[in-house]
């Protein structure tokens, strides 16, 4: 049983981290576009908000029709689900960089790209990072649903426990999810605090 548990944890982590990684790249790019292109910001934010309001079960079911059963469907679902905090934090972070610093950067002759990479992203990184943290912690619990669309992970163990009315099994699946969520939340909050110090 402990072998199955370890395997479940590793699969769970793999699915979540791949999804959050993709979501971070996508979300940061979308956040930047929303920041740069003024008329697109409400559209982009609206889309990512709507994605989040779709019940996860329904979203997964819809994706299953396109992608079939398996881990891929779960990853795509998590990517869509994790977008909102990352997009909105990136957008807010970039937008809230002090206008004086933006003015100084522009006045010194930095191009749009140089301003983004040398000033705006470094200064909004703590907020972007916090968006990624929220996305990761959320995804850890949503990923349990994976069992319903044939994906691997800790959901399998919990589901097996429900089917056999085995309390032990349910807890064995659920507790690692909780622990992982707590550990990531704690660790990443610590890093976040350190990041903030350098940008104030």
């Amino acid at each position: 049983m402990s072998g199955a548990l370890l395997e479940g944890i590793l699969e769970h982590m793999a699915i979540v981290s791949i999804a959050v990684l993709i979501s971070s790249v996508l979300g940061i790019i979308m956040g930047i576009i929303a920041y740069w292109v003024r008329f697109l910001d409400s559209v982009i934010l609206w889309v990512s908000e709507v994605l989040q309001t779709i019940p996860s079960l329904a979203l997964l079911a819809l994706l299953m029709i396109i992608f079939g059963l398996g881990d891929i469907t779960m990853i795509v679902g998590l990517v869509l689900y994790a977008l909102l905090p990352i997009v909105s934090n990136t957008y807010t972070g970039l937008k809230n960089v002090s206008p004086h610093l933006k003015d100084a950067a522009r006045g010194m002759g930095m191009s749009k790209m140089q301003r983004l990479f040398k000033v705006e992203i470094p200064l909004s990184f703590p907020l972007i990072f916090s968006g990624i943290k929220i996305a990761l912690v959320n995804s850890l619990s949503v990923a349990v649903m994976g069992v319903l669309i044939g994906a691997n992970g800790l959901g399998t163990i919990i589901y097996r426990g429900i089917q056999s009315r085995n309390m032990m099994n349910i807890l064995m699946g659920a507790i690692p999810v909780v622990i992982m969520a707590l550990v990531f939340d704690f660790g990443m909050s610590k890093i976040e605090k350190k990041l903030i110090k350098r940008t104030k």
Binding site: A104, G107, M108, G109, S111, L123, T199, K200
Partner: peptide, 28 residues
């Protein structure tokens, strides 16, 4: 962009970048 690099610019709010050291700020 090139024009601005040939003109020094100082603002009231100082505008030093908090994520860079003094040396990095000066050598931008």
């Amino acid at each position: 962009v090139e024009l601005r690099r040939t003109i020094g610019y100082v603002i009231q709010q100082i505008g030093l970048f908090p994520n860079m050291t003094v040396e990095q700020n000066i050598s931008i």
